[in-house]
C-alpha cells in the first residue's frame, strides 16, 4: 500500500450531505475484476451527461479543480454500498484525502486499505475548509498525518482525531494481511479453543 505522510494540494469543494458510494462509482463500473482504471468514472453520473459529455458545472470538471488531490464534502460521506471501487476510483482520479464532518463506517475503513486519508472534522471546521476550497486552484490546503493537522491556505490549522493503529499503517504503507500473519499463533490458539467450545461452527 502507498504511504501517506504529508500532502499539499488543491481541495475541491463538494457541499453535499450523504454522498453515497453509488454516486461515487455507479454500479455499471463494478463489473471489473481489477482495482485500477476507475478514476475516469469517478462520480460518473454527476460528471457526464447521458452521451458521455462532461457537465461543465460539476466541480471536478472545472479547470481549477481537475488536478484536485483533496475533496471537502458534507456529512455522512461514503454511505451505502460496501464497494471498495469507491476509494479505488477516488485514488485513481488522484484524490488522496477526503475531509467531511462524518463518514460512513465501511467506506472509512476501505480508505485506509488504499492509502487514502479520510479526515473527520467538526462542521464549523469543514465550513472554513469548504470556503477555502471554493477559492480555487491557488488556495492550497496542507494535510500532515504525523501531526494530525489540516492547514488552510490562510494558515488556519485544524487538528483531527485518528485511530493510532490506522495512522501507523498509513504512515508506513503497511500491508494489513502481513501484519496479521505475524499473529498466526494467536489465531491458531483461538481456533483450537473455539473448536472445543463451539464444535458446531
Amino acid at each position: 500500500m502507498d504511504k501517506f505522510t504529508t500532502l499539499t494540494g488543491i481541495a475541491a469543494p463538494m457541499p453535499l450531505v450523504n454522498v453515497d458510494t453509488d454516486m461515487i462509482i455507479p454500479k455499471q463500473f463494478l463489473k471489473t475484476i481489477k482495482r485500477s482504471g476507475l478514476g475516469v468514472n469517478l462520480f460518473d453520473e454527476m460528471r457526464y451527461d447521458q452521451d458521455g459529455n462532461e457537465i461543465p458545472d460539476f466541480v471536478l470538471n472545472q479547470p481549477q479543480y481537475r488536478e484536485a488531490e483533496i475533496l471537502v464534502a458534507g456529512d455522512n460521506f461514503g454511505c451505502g454500498s460496501s464497494r471498495e471501487h469507491a476509494p479505488w476510483a477516488i485514488k485513481d482520479f488522484g484524490i488522496r484525502c477526503v475531509i467531511a464532518p462524518s463518514f460512513a463506517d465501511i467506506f472509512y475503513n476501505n480508505c485506509f486499505k488504499n492509502g487514502i486519508l479520510p479526515i473527520a472534522l467538526p462542521q464549523e471546521a469543514v465550513d472554513v475548509l469548504m470556503k477555502d476550497a471554493e477559492k480555487g486552484a491557488n488556495a492550497r490546503v496542507t494535510v500532515d498525518l504525523e501531526a494530525q493537522t489540516v492547514t488552510t491556505s490562510d494558515g488556519e490549522v485544524f487538528t483531527f482525531e485518528l485511530d493510532s493503529f490506522k495512522k501507523h499503517c498509513l504512515l508506513n504503507g503497511l500491508d494489513d494481511i502481513g501484519l496479521t500473519m505475524e499473529k498466526a499463533a494467536s489465531i491458531d490458539t483461538f481456533e483450537a479453543q473455539a473448536a472445543q467450545a463451539r464444535p458446531w461452527v
Partner: peptide
C-alpha cells in the same frame, strides 16, 4: 454480521480474522 470491503475480504480469506475496534 456486517459488510466489509474487498481488501477486508482478502484479509478474511487469508487469516479468517478482521482487524476491528
Amino acid at each position: 454480521a456486517h459488510g466489509i470491503g474487498t481488501s477486508e475480504v482478502e484479509h478474511v480469506l487469508a487469516t479468517q480474522t478482521l482487524i476491528q475496534k
